[in-house]
């Protein structure tokens, strides 16, 4: 089984930053795939399935994040996450909850 690691950089563009609901959507999305995913903000690295860890990053609007995925469907999970970020987590740009 090939264990390729792919990574990509995303920029947070939703107003509220990586908050509770955004973290939940990330965790939910990642769980649908087999790949291991981590999120990197400057020197902090957290598992993308750990909501509490994700919020603890304190990533605000404008923050640059690295996403790294390892596993067979690494590319697919990054695509799915990329859509989530570019879609501002489905927020209509009011401060979310």
């Amino acid at each position: 089984m090939s264990q390729t690691t792919v990574s990509r950089t995303v920029v947070l563009t939703n107003r509220a930053g990586l908050h509770l609901r955004a973290a939940m959507l990330i965790a939910k999305t990642v769980r649908q795939f087999a790949a291991q995913v981590s999120i990197v903000k400057s020197h902090q690295r957290v598992e993308a399935t750990d909501m509490l860890q994700i919020i603890s990053l304190g990533a605000e609007c404008g923050a640059e994040l690295g996403i790294e995925a390892t596993g067979q469907d690494a590319d697919q999970v990054l695509d799915a996450l990329g859509r989530l970020f570019s879609d501002n987590f489905g927020e209509d740009q009011e401060p979310g909850n």
């Binding site: 509770l20 609901r21 973290a23 939940m24 965790a27 939910k28 598992e47 750990d50 909501m51 509490l52």
Partner: peptide
């Protein structure tokens, strides 16, 4: 109701 969904997910957070 999304906030409750988030709470629910947090409760089941594997790390927690």
């Amino acid at each position: 109701s999304a906030i409750f969904e988030a709470h629910l997910q947090m409760l089941h957070d594997s790390r927690l």
